[in-house]
Simulated assay, not measured.
Amino acid sequence: MPTFTSKNVSIHYNFNDAAGPDAPVLMFSNSLGTTLDMWRPQLEALSSDFRILRYDTRGHGQSSAPQGPYSLDQLGEDVIALLDHLQLPKVHLCGLSLGGFVTQWLAINAPERLHSAVICNIAAVTAAPTFWHDRANLVLSEGMQAIVDGVMARFFSPRFAQGSPAAVRAVHEGFVSTPAVGYAGACAAIQHADFRANLPTVDLPVLVIGGSLDQAAPPEGVKQVAELIPHARYVELDAAHISNIENPAGFNGAIVDFLGGLKA
């Protein structure tokens, strides 16, 4: 898969344009501790109607992992740089967890680059800043293995973990392969996120997706994102935090319904 370099950071991406040059571009931004591979259930389901753009957030996957801390400004500007590199004026952007914060940042700071936004499994504000500070220090001192079991327990419901062990194992392997410095850098970006004051200014079509079983981003906090954005739509799925993997049929269906409605 290709990479490009912006401000000394190499960003790894995959652009599936099998749907043809006139198809709309649907871009995905990944969760903390995952890679662009987390979007495989969407690639398979949506690539006939959309050109699918996936990328590894800086510090993750095959993108470079510079010394942190990172900021949401940097993560959002990485997206803009990738769009410029590919000469894409506008995209539909879908982000989950950390990617949901990045999507909120772009909807507020660069709405001219988005046709619409899909914000998944993330609130408008970080509830426990000290948690992310401590988490970053822990992985830097003890490695990703120190937290992986607890993270997987929040990523997926027990029901899904028992019924789909291969899917959980793939995410587990990607998580422990994440550079500790990259994970810690992204924790810093999350630590002080608070978009509550700015979300009411968003003037884009927005879909917000929550998970009824999500312990990492409880649905009441996710629903607040939709309540703050004028005319946003909220959908709650039977899933935990990584809802696009745990409930791909519901997730993909919600996106298709939302984007299909924009064409009408």
Results as ranks from 00 to 15, higher is better:
P2L: 06
V9F: 09
S10T: 11
Y13H: 13
N14P: 14
A23I: 10
V25P: 11
L26D: 03
L36E: 08
D37T: 13
W39L: 07
R40S: 08
S47L: 04
S48W: 15
R54D: 12
R54S: 11
D56M: 07
Q62P: 11
S63M: 08
S63C: 13
S63D: 12
S64D: 12
P66M: 11
L72Q: 01
L75Q: 03
E77K: 09
V79T: 01
A81D: 10
L82W: 02
L82Q: 09
L83T: 15
G95I: 08
G95P: 02
G99Y: 08
G100M: 10
Q104S: 04
Q104C: 01
W105L: 08
A107H: 01
I108F: 07
N109Q: 15
P111G: 15
P111V: 14
P111D: 10
L114P: 00
H115M: 04
S116I: 03
A117M: 09
V118C: 04
I119Y: 02
I119R: 02
N121W: 04
T126C: 10
A127T: 10
P129T: 15
P129S: 13
T130A: 15
T130S: 12
T130Q: 15
D134R: 11
R135K: 08
A136P: 09
N137W: 08
L138T: 14
S141M: 14
E142C: 00
G143A: 08
G143F: 03
G143Q: 04
M144A: 06
M144T: 09
V148G: 07
D149E: 05
G150N: 03
F155H: 08
S157E: 01
S157A: 03
S157C: 00
A161Y: 07
P165L: 01
A166L: 11
A166T: 13
A166I: 11
A167M: 07
V168I: 06
A170W: 06
S177I: 14
T178K: 12
T178Y: 10
P179E: 05
P179I: 11
Y183E: 04
C187Y: 09
A189G: 09
D194C: 02
T201M: 09
V208G: 03
G210P: 03
S212D: 14
L213G: 02
A216D: 07
P218C: 07
V222T: 10
K223I: 13
E227R: 12
L228P: 12
E236Q: 03
L237A: 05
L237T: 05
A239E: 00
A240S: 03
H241R: 07
H241L: 11
S243N: 01
E246C: 00
N247E: 03
N247F: 11
N252C: 06
I255F: 06
V256K: 14
L259D: 07
G261I: 06
K263Y: 08
A264R: 14
